[in-house]
Design a protein around this nucleic acid. Structure first.
Lengths: 336, 336
DNA sequence: GATGTGTATCGAAACGATTCGACGAGCCTA
DNA sequence: TAGGCTCGTCGAATCGTTTCGATACACATC
């Protein structure tokens, strides 16, 4: 069943059917009604391959997300989808394996499918300005850090200030009297990853309060509970008199909390903990975990807005930096 | 840059380029090498719209998942993607909003994109045999229950036995001496939803052990911590002498555990808790939550296998029922 | 009656691939 | 040397849309 059949059955020309389906050009009301009834009757759905082929540009948006299983992204993905559908466009969610060249993959998709635009979500990108420029369609980087020094005018982004956010959390712990605060995050030995930016904020807070930075208090671990657990165990075994832990994600914090509690220590009695992201599970941990919360849903929303502004012809790239929020629940306390 | 350009630059015909790219037909080695070098040099990627249009059938697989944010699905999605890519096919992940007609949405996609096959993941489907049949491409239902009585020969599925699994968990709690066991799940007042099937298992266990079923011990709640928390609170307020809780998901269990702990009760001292699914967070809760674990990754793997068998011409539908596993950690104990 | 102006519609050309029938060159065979 | 076969290649037709120029009619204008 194709447009030709529909045209024949309706007793009109092909182009008339096309105009009815696309609400373009003029069609008399009676013809429109007749065509629509036939379309409905035969459950006709236009073939998007043919449509996109002819239109050179499809209206499909792609979401390239690094680590689709990251719970922090869950609500963001949902919001991106909601917003994109609201604008009448289909969304393709593409999970990007760790270690895959995500911009290259996007490039492939863009050429293959004549994409309308792309949102990149999560991770650290090691791409040059030139590579981004070559994409040829509007795109937005959401909660992403770029390793190479890319001119801000070459891309749009939505993020929080990681340095400032980590600074905020660390300062909070210091203000509660903590002096031996450890920090758990992933450090791929490169500048400008999420982990190293948060480390910067951590260091800055220590320095401002005259506390010497002790590398032994910093543990490298992936963003998952099992790694947080192992890292915290290692730290506790060092017997450095740690009274507080700051984790670069709630998943890490949950694992670390488990390590603390299962060592017979209490939270926040013996050890205070602050996480990062603001996922729902952290709130329902016992005790409820303090965290630096990112406004994920709004960030997703704004990402889509920026993308469609660019698609709509806006030429100026935008960089929206959201404010993170220190959420105090029950996992830290004042000491001394 | 299209196939015509590549052909011209390489000094060969269009069809030769096509044959090189598809490894079909005969092409001399020298010609092949020449074409490939041109393709590489200009970074040419064939347009998939044109390709799929002509081929009538694309090689794209769609994954329709209800609730992409469900942490239990996270690893399954990853595995589906891995397996599908391994077979050289692109995967389209499609989040299905609650309340959306997922089979209708799939139907639309299938017609639009000439899909190769579809995997449906999660939820309860209220579709008739006829509707499934109309899809016209191979499909597999993974961790899904169907409301209508659909002939098993009309679809393939991968699942666990929900009745048996709930029976197992409840029996375990009973064997520990518990008599007032509550059950938390989502009941949309229909038979054959995940919630009502697990309720069946719960009832069966009670009955077999001569414990009377008390509807007051059963609470309706969505599959998220906040709902589990509220439901458990309601239950505790009823003062029914509950000593154990069985939750139909780990997310519910985590919320319920929070409610118990924040009421000043201890786990498993005062209340034992068993969850369902086997997500990582449940293990890192404190105390570690007992759960009925589903082998999600294997289920995803087998789903893809079945799908490609069907695509490959296999005509017999298969129904693979996995064994769930009762994982005993630290959230239940013997009483009396 | 010739011309102009809308309005509703049509058909043909494109979009970029695949594929099938055809064809030429080279070689073997009778 | 004619005929048949193989190998490598070509070009045209095709997939199902969109879109643009053309057309046909009705009606108003001069």
């Amino acid at each position: 069943m194709n447009i030709k059949d529909i045209a024949k059955i309706s007793g009109v020309g092909i182009s008339t059917v096309s105009r009815v389906l696309n609400n373009s050009g003029v069609v008399s009301d009676t013809t429109r009604a007749r065509v629509l009834s036939v379309v409905k009757k035969y459950n006709y759905v236009p073939n998007s391959n043919a449509r996109n082929l002819k239109k050179i540009q499809s209206n499909t948006i792609a979401l390239m997300v690094k680590g689709i299983s990251n719970p922090f992204f869950a609500n963001m993905i949902k919001e991106v989808e909601r917003q994109v559908h609201l604008r009448g466009c289909p969304l393709m969610i593409q999970q990007v394996e760790d270690g895959v060249d995500e911009v290259g993959a996007a490039m492939q998709l863009i050429k293959e499918k004549n994409l309308y635009g792309v949102i990149f979500m999560g991770g650290t990108y090691d791409h040059s300005e030139e590579e981004f420029r070559q994409l040829g369609v509007p795109f937005v980087l959401t909660t992403i850090t770029t390793l190479k020094d890319v001119d801000p005018s070459a891309f749009s982004s939505v993020s929080i200030d990681d340095v400032q956010s980590a600074y905020k959390a660390t300062s909070y712990l210091i203000s509660l009297g903590h002096r031996h605060i450890c920090f758990l995050a992933r450090f791929p030995f490169r500048e400008n990853t999420i982990g190293s930016r948060r480390l910067l904020g951590y260091k800055k807070a220590l320095e401002e309060h005259g506390i010497e930075y002790d590398p032994a208090l910093v543990e490298d671990c992936e963003y998952a509970p099992s790694f947080g657990f192992a890292a915290a165990k290692r730290l506790l075994n060092k017997n450095l008199g740690v009274t507080a832990m700051f984790a670069a994600s709630d998943a890490i914090a949950i694992g670390a909390a488990k390590a603390v509690l299962s060592s017979g220590l209490s939270i926040p009695g013996d050890v205070s903990i602050v996480g990062f992201d603001g996922i729902e599970m952290a709130e329902y941990y016992h005790p409820s975990l303090d965290t630096v919360s990112q406004p994920g849903v709004e960030m997703a929303h704004v990402s889509v807005e920026i993308l469609f502004d660019l698609i709509g012809g806006e030429t100026a790239n935008r960089h929206v930096v959201f404010e993170s929020m220190l959420v105090k629940r029950g996992s830290s306390r004042k000491i001394n």
